[in-house]
Write a protein that binds this DNA or RNA. Sequence first.
DNA 1: GTCTATAGTTTGATAGAC
DNA 2: GTCTATCAAACTATAGAC
Lengths: 170, 170
Amino acid sequence: MRQLALAVELSVAAIYHHFPDKNTLYLEAVRFAFSDKEQVFDQVWKSDGSAEEKLGRFIRALIEVMLEDRDFHRLMQREILEADPARMQLLAQGVFNNQFCLLMQLVAEMAPDQDSHLLATSVIGLAKYYIEYQPLLKNFPGWKPEHEKPEFIAMHITTLLLNSFKAKAA
Amino acid sequence: MRQLALAVELSVAAIYHHFPDKNTLYLEAVRFAFSDKEQVFDQVWKSDGSAEEKLGRFIRALIEVMLEDRDFHRLMQREILEADPARMQLLAQGVFNNQFCLLMQLVAEMAPDQDSHLLATSVIGLAKYYIEYQPLLKNFPGWKPEHEKPEFIAMHITTLLLNSFKAKAA
DNA sequence: GTCTATAGTTTGATAGAC
DNA sequence: GTCTATCAAACTATAGAC
């Protein structure tokens, strides 16, 4: 609280005037951090082109959001680590549900015979891991500077998935 | 420290007799938690069969290790969240390097024309996400109880990857 | 090696003046 | 609405007896 007070240039007492306790403040901060992420993806869904192109753009947007807003990303990780059931429900229904459904629809279009929940999960999982584990991955053999570039990661994930769809269809 | 002392049925002072400070104790605990995970994978590499079968077994083992030892998994997540560069290097070189290299070799065998570092990362990323985000994923539409079963997740990931390799080769 | 007792800080939160 | 001053509890770590 003291560090926060310093950062916002207020006293601790002043913060406690606006929030009843630390936990409530934290929850409202999480809500706020997550609230403005939706619109980044909206323009992906509004854009025209094939389903394949849309998937590519979505993955690219996902990676860029996570890379450019490190605080948002770390906050989300923290919440998942905590894994409080009530808060998970809030997060799912209040924040991510809409995007997840749109992604499920998209992959269902491309691979109608597969489990779209699992596929949507795979898309997000692939993207998240590359970002989250970058500090660790750097230390493994075979790492290249390109592996940090959003467009490079996005391209790899997109072709991986599209290849998989192609094989299944054949 | 008090909670730990209670758990191990010692006084705090007795713990401080064995460890110089809290951070050193934590680091040694991390080391210990990670030390006995290698052998689970060793029998996968020793088993015979095609590369495809080995990949399937590796993914299955990965998911089972993460699911059955929740503490280990949460500890790793915590470390990654912290992302201290020195500790990442320790973790990579001292713990995971061997397994990562073996996995890279395996995927290189199946998809020689692709970036094996990226592919190995994809394998782990897919597996990790399903486990880590289960509390969140449950709240999305399309979730089924099977999505929690290790063999089901392993199967999905394995076919996804094998399909992708197949398409690339064709 | 283990204990009790306690030092020295930091933490979340409040009282009361302005 | 903001401040200074302060409390009570919890924290890491240590001293010293056995």
